[in-house]
Amino acid sequence: MTIAIKGTRNGLTIVIPDEEAWEQVLSQLQAKFGEQESFWSGAAVLELGERELEEEDLKKAIALLEEAKLGPFHLVALHPKTIETGARIGLCPPSAPEKLPTGNALYLKGTIRSGQVVRHDGSIVICGDVNAGAEVIAGGDVVVFGTLRGMAHAGAEGNEKAQVVAVNLRPTQIRIAGKIARSPDHGAPPLSKSPEVASIVGGDINISPLS
């Protein structure tokens, strides 16, 4: 297992696997950040999992990362001693956890009919059908446990990572952030037997089976 580096909206996240020996971790960090020091910069989150760390060991890693122009740092750890260690040298959990669009989902049961509009800042979950002529507009995701025939707009405030998911996806139109896709003009698309998800892939709205 090697360390994993992920770029997120809040900066870099470095995931350090529990099984790896600390010396190995340090040399991996050296290898990754020593070479490309100009490529990474800014805030970083260190995910340490269940690992128990002494103050000295943690400081070594931080020093190494600071050399690569990274910082300030946040710590995500599960072991109480590691959390304590981190706090002692001024590392705390990320102050505001990434606001997930699913945080305040609106749950609706029943059929949304033509002419009805469901609008919500967060995600919308509908247990029922959305008929043609109805509109579902969400700041986050739109999830339909039923047939989506109407218009669904996910990420209405610009979140391009938002998705539209339906057990039976047959919409007149799907919008994600500022993108619009419509159903083909000729012939209804074949009825998919499995739930599908619409999301932005490479700048376009793409529909794929929900895996």
Binding site: G115, G133, T172, I180, R182, D185
Partner: peptide, 17 residues
């Protein structure tokens, strides 16, 4: 308004923004 149908007869319903 409220009972839109002309788009359906013309087959343009999926283009409305």
């Amino acid at each position: 308004i409220g009972l839109r149908n002309l788009d359906l007869v013309l087959g343009l319903e999926n283009r409305i923004v």
